[in-house]
């Protein structure tokens, strides 16, 4: 229970910071002290896509790489603690008293692989874009891009964001569980490295 309250507070802080930085980005003169683009820099999916497309690792990409490594070490805490989109969905479910609804919509099994397919599309799109000059479409599925662009009130993105929110009220965290490529990347990274660590420990024990 206590952990849940702390999680909600962290989520609230993350949502607040995301929109505070967005608001500050529009101010003139723009603040050079605040890390206004930190959410985009921490975004592992965009970082990996840019590294694949450009074949370079710049200083600006380091936060994303370090964050990915951090998640690899301690597991995927991002989706449930930090992600502002996940936070908004959770708070909406709280406000709409979703838990008390007597409706349970089941997600088909095949839909649960959606996140992985979209993650593959993003990575492959980055590869094809970097090597074959095909258009990069991966950004369309990034939660920070969707939120940021929707906040700029661009019709297409507002619609996309609206769909995510409405479906998330019907089926809690539908986007996160079935479609979000960033969440899937962090889950894969977190699980894989932790599994390796665990396997390593077991092998060591056996040798002893």
């Amino acid at each position: 229970m206590k952990k849940n309250i702390v999680r909600r507070l962290v989520q609230f802080l993350s949502i607040f910071l995301f929109f505070f930085f967005l608001k500050k980005t529009g101010a003139f003169p723009v603040s050079e002290k605040l890390p206004l683009s930190i959410y985009y820099q921490l975004d592992g999916l965009l970082t990996i896509s840019v590294i694949i497309m450009t074949g370079t690792i710049g200083l600006l990409m380091l936060p994303g790489i370090l964050f990915l490594l951090f998640i690899g070490i301690i597991g995927n805490f991002f989706c449930w603690w930090v992600c502002p989109l996940g936070g908004i969905i959770d708070y909406l479910n709280l406000v709409t008293l979703r838990k008390q609804w007597k409706i349970t919509l089941l997600i088909p099994k095949w839909l649960r692989n959606g996140g992985l397919i979209i993650l593959m599309i993003v990575i492959l799109s980055a590869i094809f874009s970097g090597f074959l000059s095909l258009p990069f479409i991966g950004f369309v599925f990034d939660p920070f891009v969707i939120m940021g662009q929707a906040a700029t009130r661009l019709k297409l993105w507002v619609g996309f964001f609206g769909i995510i929110i409405v479906t998330a009220i019907m089926v809690p965290r539908l986007w996160c569980n079935c479609f979000c490529p960033l969440g899937r990347l962090y889950t894969l990274t977190g699980t894989k490295i932790r599994l390796k660590k665990l396997t390593g420990k077991l092998t060591k024990k056996r040798h002893e």
Binding site: F28, Y40, V50, T54, F136, D142, T152
Partner: peptide
């Protein structure tokens, strides 16, 4: 290189006074 580095986050568009 520009279209490869640009992640279409829209930060530049938002900040343009």
């Amino acid at each position: 290189k520009f279209s490869l580095f640009c992640i279409r986050c829209g930060q530049c568009i938002r900040t343009c006074p």
